[in-house]
Design a protein around this nucleic acid. Structure first.
Lengths: 198, 198
DNA sequence: ATGGTGATGGTACTGAGTCACATGACCAGG
DNA sequence: CCTGGTCATGTGACTCAGTACCATCACCAT
């Protein structure tokens, strides 16, 4: 199978998490990460476009998953259910062990503006993918936009509370409840909380 | 008044836009921008934290403006009207001449992923500020989140169509119509497009 | 004039990211 | 065996972003 030590990307991720946690993101050089993973600087940049990207590997799958989720929803599903299928699809990407990883990653991300910027960019990419897919399906760009925003917000809120909480249900369950909450917010919007136009 | 040539920041912005348009973002070095503005590299980085930030100067005012907008809305305003006040406040930041600048800026931003990342980060910062302010006022974090997303979406959609279109009404007007559209999307959400829970 | 203040210039440094080329591991076929 | 091909990795040199420290120079108040 593998010629040298296998899973270079995984080793680099592990090394990066270790070092970022210990010394901080800025104080850790690419060379140190590579060495800690038994590689060289050059090889690191052959695997990742930049230093931040080490922590965000696999995010592309989320984007693809969002699009596929929308397309896989039953033909007669009402818009919000299409969204639910897509967001649930996002949740299946993370296996159980990603939970502890998520916790450590979250701490690191919170420590560096540079990493937060990349995180926001990834979130935006997911939102855009969801927006495009929903827009194609619903033929209403604005409704698709609102749904995409709500879906991604439910996912991220759910993820945050999932890695925070102690009891360990699956991520999909937490996110599903989050979606219900947002669904009820949308319902209440028209029954009093929005006044008629001026 | 000014001791040397005035408005270093403005000159740097102008130089950056010129050079980015001509040679592209990546192919333009900080030294070239500085020289083109009659300054040195050192001074450039004294004014801006990094090369991208040159193009985003003044965005902080948008964030502040969003917060103030929410706080300045009449006490009895329903949620969506509070949002409208805040988003309208955003629009007053841009004077008329920002329109042509906006066009040129938009072209440049579209050409570089690095710049898009920063742009998304700024958008996110505005959304977060709006979210916090609305959340404090409405005492409902989720509703505040949905409104913040919708408001920012309306603002950015409106801005995009404002710089694209040929007839020149004020930005605030375009964005206001955009808000109306999103408001009607929200209304329709509960009258058929969302099916009862499973 | 004279000294203080604040914006600027000069220079040297670290580290990210790129590139061209060399090496070494493994696999196929002779 | 051993030989050639392929692919991940290593080496070294380079550019440029961003930082730090110190020098300089314009203006202003006294």
């Amino acid at each position: 199978m593998a010629r040298w030590e296998p899973d270079a990307r995984g080793r680099l991720l592990h090394a990066a998490v270790e070092l970022f946690s210990a010394r901080g993101y800025d104080a850790t050089t690419a060379a140190q990460i590579a060495e800690h993973a038994g590689l060289t600087r050059t090889t690191l940049f052959r695997h990742f476009a930049d230093k931040r990207e080490i922590l965000f590997q696999g995010q592309d799958e989320l984007i693809a998953s969002a699009t596929e989720g929308v397309e896989s929803a039953p033909a007669d599903s009402p818009p919000f259910d299409v969204l639910r299928v897509a967001v649930t699809a996002l949740c299946t990407i993370h296996t159980a062990d990603r939970r502890e990883t998520g916790r450590r990653l979250d701490t690191i991300l919170a420590s560096s503006p540079e990493l937060q910027e990349r995180a926001v960019f990834k979130r935006s990419a997911i939102t855009d993918a969801l927006h495009r897919a929903l827009s194609a399906r619903l033929q209403d760009a604005r409704q698709a936009g609102v749904l995409a925003d709500v879906g991604v917000r439910a996912y991220y809120d759910g993820f945050a509370s999932w890695i925070t909480s102690t009891d360990d249900g699956p991520l999909a369950e937490v996110v599903d409840h989050e979606l219900d909450s947002y669904r009820s917010v949308l319902s209440r919007m028209t029954v009093g909380l929005i006044a008629p136009r001026r």
